[in-house]
Design a protein around this nucleic acid. Structure first.
Ligand SMILES: [Mn+2]
Ligand SMILES: [Mn+2]
Ligand SMILES: [Zn+2]
Ligand SMILES: [Zn+2]
Lengths: 162, 162
DNA sequence: AACGGTATTGACAACGGTTTTCATTTCAAC
DNA sequence: GTTGAAATGAAAACCGTTGTCAATACCGTT
């Protein structure tokens, strides 16, 4: 039982003391923080900013190469990892083992309605769901609780082209 | 965007015509159906029946060997796959890539409260959640909808031993 | 504008869980 | 008991991802 999601901590700050580290701007060097700005890093960020779909590292890699902005696959993985650590991208693991990433608009806790054909995603929040999961967990005596919830379907755009 | 969960179809019958194939009992040969009864198959089923925790193929493999019922790892995988196809076990993919299996009591749709330390799981159903996901998906024009929802935490038993 | 140290890059190898292969064994119908 | 097909399992292949490390590029300093 390893590799299970960790509780939804506050995304900012993991400092030993109570100090809060702003996670935006090319910040002070810290864990999972890229300091220098590079063509490759910018390209990965731009590619993520350009789509609202969940995208895999390999897709991004191919896309960047096609766009004439070649970035090594390893480097793509590295930047995605940093962005994920910073909480700047959301991560989803699909059933076939592929990990997909998405630059979400909302910084606060939310879930996704994801098109299983094109990856197109809609961010959804549901306070009632949050309450329900908390309550169920408490009732069974579980602590340090977290949860995963995604809705998969076929988006309106994908209905047209079979 | 492959490998995304498929809609919750009825578990029985995938026959071309409307005929329904009963999926219980050592049935007529069909896709994903084991016909013969073997020591190995029984051992895997028994091991799953003996625990309420989500367990990985490798854990089962090691456990069976330790119990003096050695079964090849490949064979363990094969039986788990068949059981999953039959809907006799629930499948969960953890964040680290491991796939875990569990023989659930309820045949109907439900979710899980899973201990991230020991795998211990409680089956939970929430009609309000089902309604909410359906409604959200419909509102956004998504069709062929399915969802995943799991709650992770630390079970009461695991609180004692840090 | 040139320098220098160090963060970043990327080709390649390694990793880990799962699946495929295929020769051998086992089951069960006759 | 014979026999053909299903099941087994050791080993190799697979596939997404991560580690390695020499070469490169960024950027503060001179
Ligand atoms: Mn939530
Ligand atoms: Mn549900
Ligand atoms: Zn779509
Ligand atoms: Zn536990």
């Amino acid at each position: 039982m390893e590799g299970v999601p960790t509780a939804n901590r506050d995304r900012a700050s993991d400092e030993p003391d109570g100090r809060v580290t702003v996670s935006a701007g090319r910040g002070l060097p810290g864990r999972g923080t890229t300091t220098r700005s590079t063509r490759q890093g910018d390209a990965v960020s731009a590619a993520l900013a350009a789509t609202n779909a969940f995208t895999s590292a390999q897709e991004l890699h191919a896309q960047l190469r096609a766009d004439g902005q070649p970035v090594g696959l390893t480097t793509v993985y590295r930047h995605l990892q940093v962005l994920a650590d910073r909480g700047e991208v959301d991560v989803l693991r699909l059933d076939d083992g592929e990990t997909v990433y998405r630059r979400c608009a909302t910084g606060s806790h939310h879930h996704h309605l994801v098109c299983r054909e094109c990856g197109h995603a809609v961010e959804v929040a549901g306070p009632e769901i949050e309450r329900w999961t908390e309550q169920v967990a408490a009732a069974e005596g579980f602590t340090d609780v977290a949860h995963t919830l995604e809705i998969y379907g076929r988006c309106a755009d994908c209905v047209s082209c079979p």
